[in-house]
Design a protein around this nucleic acid. Structure first.
Lengths: 177, 177
DNA sequence: GGTGCCTTTCATTTTTTATTGAAAGAGCGG
DNA sequence: CCGCTCTTTCAATAAAAAATGAAAGGCACC
């Protein structure tokens, strides 16, 4: 079945953590926010764990706390780091890398949008260009019309993008500490 | 591996249709647009087939043309109809339902955004409300701070939504015929 | 150089999501 | 009412995505 998916209203993290309701719920929110962007639950959980932690947290603690595997944790952390949602805060004493949430989650969101949407729009643009070059046969004028419609959508999609990222800039920062 | 997914640059529909390059490419674009919204390929193909067709097309033709099953076709058409991306144009003569693309694809997009994002924001809002009611213990003031940050994000998310849908209203229509 | 501790990688497994096709439904014409 | 044609539904299957955990790599300290 094809359907627009929603997460169910009850707690999403209870299987993973059994700590204070408050912490639990804040992490729940993180999972929801991630899933809105189409990111897997584990990424939401990992981000939540870093976000919620009062001090930089290391991978080992995260995967123990969330009861998820070493591999998932590692990959999730890498993804979040590349995105700019968390950052490493050095190898406090021992060899364990410690993570904390970035102050500017907004940058991560912008990053995400740029990485995900921009290339898609670009490819669509290229596809349209290729199409333009084809001299349409006589029976294809209807298609040519449709192509024009798609072109307009593409143009306006490109326009919308900076508006959204621009709006993000006006948002208050999601700060830690 | 977790990664931001992109469709590969070469044709996405060649396995499904072997008609004119132009038609093929327009459908390709439809698939890309759908996948940007996280919809399955079949939905993109089906929408493409309806969009590209110079006259209302029936389900049977679609599933023959795309070489996909009756079930997928039926479900995809229902989904697109509910979304307002296509509409039924009566049972021309025989019992077969005929479909054509909606003029106002913009409405479908708004619909999609509203159905997908609004409920999520609402649930996040409820979750935050619930959290507010919890009197935080002494050791939880750090969490309370983080909750504030999330609250601000939620507020601004709600603000962004009408701006995006508002922007959609300024777009030229994606017209058929 | 060996040991302990932590990390990443990646082939395999599990879980989730999408697709299929057979069976059942629905309307029309005779 | 029956046969025909098209549709929907849904349990089974296939495909895709995510999670696991064993193996391999890195680094600090002895």
């Amino acid at each position: 079945m094809i359907a627009i998916k929603h997460l169910n209203p009850q707690s999403l993290v209870s299987k993973n953590i059994e700590t204070s309701t408050m912490e639990n719920s804040v992490m729940d929110l993180c999972v929801r926010l991630c899933s809105l962007l189409g990111l897997p639950k584990s990424v939401g959980l990992i981000y939540g764990a870093v976000f919620v932690s009062p001090k930089p947290i290391e991978a080992g603690q995260i995967c123990k706390k969330l009861k998820i595997s070493r591999g998932s944790t590692s990959q999730g952390l890498r993804f979040l780091k590349e995105l700019g949602a968390i950052r490493s805060s050095g190898l406090n004493g021992n060899r364990a890398e410690h993570f904390e949430a970035e102050e500017h989650l907004r940058l991560a969101l912008e990053n995400f949008i740029l990485k995900k949407i921009s290339p898609a729009l670009k490819e669509i643009g290229q596809e349209i260009e290729k199409l333009e070059k084809i001299t349409p046969g006589l029976d294809q004028h209807v298609l040519a019309e449709k192509l024009d419609a798609l072109k307009r959508w593409h143009k306006h999609g490109k326009l919308l993008l900076p508006i959204v990222t621009g709006f993000l800039k006006t948002m208050p920062l999601l700060t830690r500490k």
